[in-house]
């Protein structure tokens, strides 16, 4: 079980950093938002991993289970997912407006136009 535990944490770390890399290294604004979603997903994964209890079941009574996983991280992440999509939609809305004004979604082109 321990191998899986370490692996879960490492996947979290690598996924987090892949998202981070996309946000800082890619110049396309849509790609940046995709990277931000990956970053977010990694954080979700960490929370749910930490809430898991060995041999336990989902925190719902009445199915014969005795021990339960931690319900609190699940509640936090459940709401965070829906808030995440709302903020992503706001970001996409801004990207669409930028495209209409500058006719580009590439960061370096937009900055060049601003300098002129």
């Amino acid at each position: 079980m321990n191998i899986l535990g370490i692996y879960y944490y490492w996947v979290f770390a690598i996924l987090l950093m892949i998202g981070f890399y996309v946000v800082i290294a890619k110049l396309n604004l849509i790609k940046k938002l995709i990277g931000l979603s990956l970053f977010q997903a990694a954080v979700f994964l960490l929370y749910i991993t930490m809430g898991n209890v060995e041999g336990a079941s989902a925190p719902i009574y009445g199915f014969g289970a005795e021990t339960f996983s931690n319900p609190l991280p699940q509640v936090l992440i459940l709401t965070a997912i829906v808030v995440g999509i709302s903020t992503t939609a706001l970001g996409l809305g801004i990207v669409v407006r930028i495209k209409e004004e500058y006719d580009s979604v590439e960061e370096h082109e937009i900055q060049e136009m601003d300098r002129r």
């Binding site: 898991n52 996983s69 699940q74 829906v82």
Partner: peptide
């Protein structure tokens, strides 16, 4: 990881709505 509620949300939001918006 025993998080059935969260799995349901992620499947509906992440794989469904988010893809459509992108």
């Amino acid at each position: 990881l025993d998080a059935a509620d969260v799995a349901l949300t992620e499947a509906a939001v992440g794989a469904g709505i988010s893809t459509v918006l992108f």
